[in-house]
Design a protein around this nucleic acid. Sequence first.
DNA 1: GTCTATACATGGATAGAC
DNA 2: GTCTATCCATGTATAGAC
Lengths: 188, 188
Amino acid sequence: MSTSERLIESTRELLWERGYVGTSPKAIQQRAGAGQGSMYHHFSGKPDLALAAIRRTADEMRAAVETWLGGPGTALERITAYLRRERDVLKGCPIGRLTQDPDVMADPVLRVPVDEMFAWVRERLAEVLAQGRDAGEFPATLDPQATASTVMAVLQGGYVLARAAGSPEPFTRAVDGVLGLLAAQATA
Amino acid sequence: MSTSERLIESTRELLWERGYVGTSPKAIQQRAGAGQGSMYHHFSGKPDLALAAIRRTADEMRAAVETWLGGPGTALERITAYLRRERDVLKGCPIGRLTQDPDVMADPVLRVPVDEMFAWVRERLAEVLAQGRDAGEFPATLDPQATASTVMAVLQGGYVLARAAGSPEPFTRAVDGVLGLLAAQATA
DNA sequence: GTCTATACATGGATAGAC
DNA sequence: GTCTATCCATGTATAGAC
């Protein structure tokens, strides 16, 4: 892997573990096994490197979401697959955590990929829910847009609760709860 | 207000706005209008001050939650009141945001009040949901523990989505979505 | 209790040699 | 492309005077 690649990957990890404010250029260099001159040769500075890292993580996440939501099965099955996919719950969402980083949210350039990523997932989820409703799987009263936001919020909030508790359990419970409510709709 | 009080209040604000890692002793002192000597006279350091701030915020939040969940009305009405209470959505949850702070989660002393606060709200919500179920408001199949976690996750995740979008709308939609699912249960 | 001085590490970056 | 040297601000705290 090239030095530039290693720098981006190290930045991705550190942004996930410690956030933007908590990540220093020096820490990135050490993890990448690169010197200062090397980092500033390939990138103009911390924001530039962070942008590359955030974009890549957002792209990967879109692909991962599509894997589950675009798979076979009913709407409820696909949403269940997405919510229950294997994940390291205590690490949280690498994109969601950036929303708590004041310096990321204050920088329009860094903020855009975060915003776009969530907007895309919401639309994708709403599509699946609308398909389920149109297929008669859910009642006509179900609001795909609102419910899509709810499902995403359960994920993001589930991470928060799990980290607070130091255990994946609250995440699992929150997911079970919303799937229970959705399933009740499906059989109503 | 005493100097010590002003230091705690300033710390509360800064922890909310910038998190633990993003908040420096100097920034706290400046906002409180206190000198360095003053701060280190009243508190042993940044973690000590943060602990006082976090405890106070957690206590206030418990009281606020009880105001809404302990009020009059059916279970669904009380939960609706809690979820729809006025709030500065874009600022997020002052306790929830701490879960993204690596130095807070790594310090058992700072982490305990965060953990306890969420555990308490979850229990309180589960109680209300169980009352609603026992009163016949919700079907017997509703799982109070799981649903309580779901409701809390929608709140915490709603904040995340709102911050990402730079707008309170995703929060409102997520809340509307979960209330819709709950209401469908109630009338099923 | 509060102030100023001091200290030493880290953050974030530039300059210039190789 | 990478390395070392250097730079200045900030983070976090201690010491000691008032």
